[in-house]
Design a binder for these strands. Sequence first.
DNA 1: TCCTTTATACTAACCGGTTGGTATGTTATA
DNA 2: TATAACATACCAACCGGTTAGTATAAAGGA
Lengths: 190, 190
Amino acid sequence: MSMKAKITQASVLLFEEKGFSDTSIQDIVEAIGVTKGTFYYYFNSKEQLLMEIHLEYISDLLKRQQTILEKDHLSGREKLEAIIALLIHDIQNNGPSGRVFFREMRHLVEQNVDTIETQRDLFRLNIEQLITDSIEAGEFRQDLRADIVAFGVLGITNYSYNWFNPKGKMSADELIELFSSLLLEGIIPR
Amino acid sequence: MSMKAKITQASVLLFEEKGFSDTSIQDIVEAIGVTKGTFYYYFNSKEQLLMEIHLEYISDLLKRQQTILEKDHLSGREKLEAIIALLIHDIQNNGPSGRVFFREMRHLVEQNVDTIETQRDLFRLNIEQLITDSIEAGEFRQDLRADIVAFGVLGITNYSYNWFNPKGKMSADELIELFSSLLLEGIIPR
DNA sequence: TCCTTTATACTAACCGGTTGGTATGTTATA
DNA sequence: TATAACATACCAACCGGTTAGTATAAAGGA
């Protein structure tokens, strides 16, 4: 693994554990056995490192969301389930990055916040569009508000980053099935 | 308002805006025009201040949840809707405190984290129990897992702290109705 | 009632320690 | 030998917390 990737990986773990502000660059370089000179050879600032972590996280999610949305043979329901699965599986593979993404965005400079928020909003608006289309197609309830449903889906999945342990008794696939069933079928018996 | 209350209020707003670690005690006392000595007259440490903010927030929510659960004439559905309303309305009244609660708990010392987590878990387990009872009573779907539904309800509502603006076009009451409908009836038409 | 004591509510000044960042020096590799 | 990849040493600024001291008010005794 390249030194830059080592620095990034160690940073994510430390940022997750202690937060961005309480993690010093000294902490980061000590974790991988180098010195501050090395850090500033690869990054111009602590903030730039945080920005790269954010960009990597959200652009990866957007790319994978896009491949789901392009699968025209899938129904709206199947696409929605696939996006839920994308996010829940991501806890397993990218949990630390996700938690840093949700918690530490405020420490980016304003321009970078704008960039990240635009991409984050795009992910949400893609879900909203999927729901709008499915409502129009008659597959989803006519009286739903697509924006609120999108926020609901994201709320359920993103909150899981805070409690779901993929190594626990319940597997990611079970959780995906349960959340999909809850959202699609509702709590009240049919 | 007492000086201690002033300090707490100013702190919540600053913690929300800049985060706990990036808010210095100097920032807090400057916001209300006193000096650091005043701060340490009322608090033993910055951490103690954070703990009091946390305690006030969660104990208030628990108390109000309890009054809902005690209303025996309400159905499970009505109780669940009342708890959703409790949390959404709280964004309006206690948004800053809520965001500080969700984001800054890690900065408490271990013993205090335990205390807060126990109360936070109690809030969730109360919802879980309500759902378990309603499933057994046949009011809710038999194939639901109460724990997952509780996490789902909390995910949807707590995530709203991050995006819902009570002063925007949509009112809190509208949002409560939309979320209740989504969770209870589901996305797929009946 | 007067005077002493004590409590309250602060202020100003300071301390040891840490921070992000920089300037410069050294080493390995191609 | 030139450049990439580091290490070393350092700085000015800032941090949470402490301390000594002060003005005002309340309480208590002769």
